[in-house]
Deep mutational scan, measured.
Amino acid sequence: QVNQQQLQQLMDMGFTREHAMEALLNTSTMEQATEYLLTHP
């Protein structure tokens, strides 16, 4: 289960819902999730 607010923040940054969910499931903080998305295009 992912934090919906964090998911929305990542989608607002331009990431897809699927990619943002993957990042949130594989990390524990927003900072890590953002870094994950930038390093796993």
Results as ranks from 00 to 15, higher is better:
Q1N: 02
Q1P: 00
Q1H: 00
Q1S: 06
V2W: 02
N3Q: 09
N3R: 01
N3A: 01
Q4F: 05
Q4R: 05
Q4G: 04
Q4I: 08
Q4V: 04
Q5T: 13
Q5G: 12
Q5I: 12
Q5S: 12
Q6L: 09
Q6E: 08
Q6N: 13
Q6H: 07
L7A: 07
L7Y: 02
L7F: 03
L7E: 05
L7W: 00
Q8F: 12
Q8W: 05
Q8P: 02
Q8R: 11
Q9A: 10
Q9G: 08
Q9P: 04
Q9S: 10
L10E: 03
M11E: 14
M11D: 01
M11T: 10
M11S: 07
M11Q: 11
D12S: 09
D12P: 00
D12H: 10
M13L: 09
M13H: 06
G14T: 01
G14L: 00
G14D: 12
G14C: 03
G14E: 10
G14F: 00
G14A: 02
G14V: 00
F15N: 14
T16M: 11
T16N: 12
T16A: 13
T16V: 10
T16R: 08
R17E: 13
R17M: 04
R17Y: 02
E18L: 06
E18P: 08
E18W: 01
E18Q: 12
E18C: 06
E18K: 09
E18A: 05
H19R: 11
H19K: 14
H19Q: 13
H19F: 09
A20L: 00
A20D: 00
A20I: 02
M21D: 13
M21W: 08
M21H: 13
E22Q: 02
E22W: 10
E22I: 08
A23E: 02
A23N: 01
A23K: 04
A23D: 01
L24T: 06
L25W: 04
L25F: 07
L25A: 11
L25N: 15
N26P: 02
N26F: 07
N26Q: 11
N26I: 03
T27H: 11
T27D: 03
T27F: 09
T27Q: 04
T27M: 05
S28Y: 05
S28R: 08
S28K: 15
T29N: 06
T29E: 08
M30I: 09
M30R: 08
M30Q: 12
M30E: 09
M30W: 08
M30K: 10
E31T: 06
E31I: 04
E31A: 06
Q32H: 08
Q32K: 14
Q32I: 02
A33L: 01
A33W: 00
A33E: 02
A33C: 04
A33Q: 02
A33V: 01
T34A: 06
T34Q: 15
T34I: 05
T34S: 10
E35M: 07
E35A: 14
E35D: 08
Y36I: 05
L37W: 11
L37F: 06
L37I: 07
L37C: 14
L37P: 10
L38M: 15
L38Y: 03
L38W: 08
T39N: 09
T39M: 10
T39K: 15
T39R: 13
T39W: 04
H40D: 13
H40L: 14
H40G: 11
H40Y: 09
H40I: 02
P41G: 15
P41S: 11
P41V: 11
P41R: 14
P41I: 15
P41M: 05
